[in-house]
Write a protein that binds this DNA or RNA. Structure first.
Lengths: 129, 129
DNA sequence: CTTTCTAATTAAGTTGACTTAACTATATAA
DNA sequence: TTATATAGTTAAGTCAACTTAATTAGAAAG
């Protein structure tokens, strides 16, 4: 786990992004487009800070600001092609070690783990929703 | 996982410590005493930064600097009583949600997960050693 | 013993992420 | 329509963590 953490942090840093910035990209990929104010809430920072944070991501070419059709004050953030590619690579980097781990497990062991994780995921969903 | 992350970060922040500072305390608890240079290596910062980082932990009363009996230039860092207490509370805070999760699982499900985790831990040990 | 290397610290300055405050533009309510 | 609230931005300044460079003390090698 520690190894993967380092991998992630290194990947983010080597690209010149802070961890929160990278995190925003991850959120965008996972949950689709959302607005500035949601970033502020989610990361517990002021709207001003959120704006500055996203500005850097826009300048880096990873996200695009698009107009919210329902509210012309608001802006939606969307992953660009480059951003998409970047995040996918980051995730691969982060989870590379899992491949090594999987190789060490028998088919039976893998099945057991898969089942256990399914149980856990369901329970966690119940916890959140 | 996200929830627990936030919990940890909040706990660290509310105590006035940065996450790296808290991380040093965790390492100290997990691996016992070690020296300044190891911190610099582990966190990929200069010795100067490591020194400043630990200074704050010393001032907060969480760790103590003791002399290395083998090398009088070097100093060993050790968790103080207060530091020990602080870390334990932090860990509890971080993993509180696991209790909620466990309550949602039947005895059978818990057994399956336990078995799967045992398999995983062994495989990871093999990966590291 | 003297030179050189290593561990840690301190001082000074840089950087980046954050804050507050002021502002623009749009939405909503009176 | 006017007033008020909301979404986002920009400017200015704060603060913490980092860097480099200089310093002290002890270790290791010649």
């Amino acid at each position: 786990m520690h190894r993967s953490m380092r991998g992630w942090i290194r990947f983010a840093r080597s690209s010149g992004l802070s961890l929160p910035q990278f995190s925003v990209l991850m959120q965008l990929r996972h949950r689709g487009s959302f607005g500035m104010s949601e970033i502020a809430e989610k990361f517990e920072i002021t709207p001003a800070a959120a704006s500055q944070l996203t500005e850097k991501l826009v300048q880096a070419g990873y996200i695009e600001r698009i107009e919210d059709p329902n509210d012309r004050r608001a802006k939606l953030l969307r992953l660009s092609k480059a951003g998409e590619k970047f995040v996918v690579e980051g995730v691969e980097e982060r989870y590379r070690w899992i491949n090594d781990l999987t190789k060490r497990l028998s088919a039976e062991e893998q099945a057991k783990i898969s089942e256990a994780l399914t149980i856990l995921i369901k329970a966690m969903e119940g916890l959140i929703l």
